[in-house]
């Protein structure tokens, strides 16, 4: 703050602070508070808004438990609320996406931080970033094309002889969504881990090796514990972004994949029931945050570690 004042003078600093405050207040806080308030009120015809039936209740939140379908798990068949099912699957597959991103990103991050010649690192980072210059929509469509029934992936696999018949990738449950989400968010896993590993003193890796550690123990005892904050923040980011993604599930989803954000979107834009939709949105936000908090406690990660 002192620094800012010295550099830009009182007037300019004041204007900047006011603009930031305006942005925070009008574009973030106020809309969220409005939606939050709406989520407790029933969806009513315009004439009845503010009338005697317009009272606060948790009715909208309770709606996630409505509408049962038959599901089967481990061979048992039972009735289950459809939206809760969607919600649980969203959480589960977001976790799988985070896990797969971790498995892809960790070796690459280690390679970038400790093995690759520092001179070729900028090129490598550039190559990783180029896809980010293309809009998310286009990237999702690109994958839609790649995964198409008569698309290049099937053509390649057929040519190599790995498969005999083309596969309907985008119609296999959540496969397409997984691929799209991993592709879209893997860099959010890569860079925190890369930063964490880069700050590890190479002498520590060498000391461990000198003391007789095989390579996997060096990772298990030295590199991964050091990179834990990076792994945690990458996982939280990928998980939250995946669970909140609407675009990828809409484009790459199959007939049997439903993402909770799609449920919210349908309630907003098809049913035009903003009150219930707001309730669902806050439910997603609150439960995901809760989930992440519990996971952090379980893995003994502190919030301050992630902030680093």
């Amino acid at each position: 703050m002192q620094d800012l004042l010295r550099r830009y003078g009182t007037g300019l600093t004041l204007i900047m602070c006011l603009l930031v405050a305006f942005w925070l207040l009008m574009l973030v806080i106020v809309p969220n508070i409005t939606l939050f308030e709406q989520s407790f009120r029933p969806y009513l015809p315009v004439s009845e808004v503010g009338g005697p039936r317009d009272t606060y209740s948790l009715g909208n939140y309770a709606k996630v438990f409505e509408g049962h379908i038959t599901t089967s798990l481990l061979g048992f068949e039972f009735e289950f609320p459809v939206r809760v099912r969607t919600f649980l699957l969203t959480i589960w597959y977001s976790m799988v996406v985070a896990g797969l991103c971790l498995m892809l990103a960790y070796p690459l991050a280690y390679y970038m931080a400790k093995i690759v010649n520092p001179r070729s690192l900028p090129t490598l980072i550039l190559l990783l970033f180029i896809p980010l210059w293309v809009s998310e929509v286009l990237r999702a469509f690109a994958w839609w094309i790649i995964l198409a029934f008569k698309g290049p992936l099937n053509a390649l696999l057929l040519a190599v002889g790995l498969i005999d018949d083309p596969i309907r990738w985008t119609n296999m449950g959540y496969t397409g969504v997984m691929i799209g989400l991993i592709y879209t968010y893997v860099l959010f896993m890569l860079f925190p881990i890369y930063n964490a590993i880069q700050s590890l003193d190479t002498n520590q890796i060498e000391a461990a090796e000198d003391l007789g550690a095989p390579w996997w123990k060096i990772h298990w005892r030295i590199v991964i514990p050091h990179a834990k904050p990076g792994i945690a923040s990458g996982s939280v980011m990928v998980f939250m972004l995946s669970a909140g993604s609407l675009l990828v599930p809409s484009i790459l989803g199959s007939t049997t994949s439903q993402w909770f954000t799609q449920t919210i979107n349908e309630t907003f834009n098809d049913a035009l029931d903003w009150n219930t939709a707001s309730a669902y949105a806050f439910l997603l936000l609150i439960l995901c945050t809760l989930f992440v908090t519990v996971a952090m406690v379980l893995f003994r990660v502190k919030l301050s570690d992630i902030a680093k």
Binding site: D201, N203, Q204, E206, A207, A208, E209, D210, L211, G212, A213, P214, R221, I222, P225, H226
Partner: peptide
């Protein structure tokens, strides 16, 4: 490889493992 030689190196900057207590450092090998 270094882990196959009967040598132990003490590094210029020591390279102790900061996330382990002293006794685990010592008994790492």
């Amino acid at each position: 490889r270094p882990n196959q030689r009967p040598t132990a190196l003490i590094f210029q900057n020591l390279a102790l493992f900061p996330l382990m207590p002293v006794w685990e450092n010592i008994s790492f090998g």
